[in-house]
């Protein structure tokens, strides 16, 4: 990762980055290559969040098994996002509803809140379409995959 500039090389600018995940985890490369950018972005000390909508909600469904596909199961990496201080994963309620999913079908993705005695808290927040739209409008940088 020698190409990465020091995080404060830009004079300590912190922008709101949201990664918008719209596609199912397998079948196309978008999900895993989105995750690669997310992990790199953690090195830049930015205000990073992820949104899962449309078929993107399948990316964080629990108990994924890709053995029949011959493709690596990268879903455990989402559970490590907390270690990179990426703690805001928004999931669109309507996208879950439309696919017969509930919050219980999603992986348990937690982070340790350093401002609250390192208490374990859930990173996933299920939000309605209207609230997600509002969150998007507050971002500086939206990357859609």
């Amino acid at each position: 990762m020698s190409d990465i500039e020091a995080p404060d090389a830009e004079g300590g600018v912190v922008k709101k980055f949201m990664f918008v995940n719209r596609k199912s985890p397998h079948g196309t490369v978008y999900a895993v290559e989105s995750l690669e950018v997310v992990l790199i972005s953690a090195a830049f000390d930015q205000d990073v969040s992820l949104a899962f909508l449309d078929d993107g909600v399948f990316q964080i469904v629990k108990q994924q098994d890709t053995s029949g596909l011959g493709i690596k199961n990268f879903s455990p990496a989402y559970r490590a996002l907390g270690d990179f201080e990426i703690t805001k994963l928004y999931v669109e309620q309507e996208a879950l509803d439309e696919r017969g999913l509930t919050a219980d079908d999603l992986m348990e993705i937690m982070y340790e809140d350093e401002d609250d005695d390192y208490e374990e808290k859930p990173s996933v927040r299920v939000v309605g379409r209207g609230e997600l739209s509002k969150l998007m409008s507050e971002q500086d940088v939206l990357l859609s995959f």
């Binding site: 990762m1 600018v13 950018v37 790199i40 995959f145």
Partner: peptide, 22 residues
């Protein structure tokens, strides 16, 4: 050829990051 850090840096430095994709 370079790394993904160059993309994140573009997001930080540019006024607007325009995404052309599907």
């Amino acid at each position: 050829i370079s790394g993904l850090g160059q993309l994140v840096e573009a997001g930080i430095i540019a006024d607007r990051l325009m995404v052309f994709g599907d």
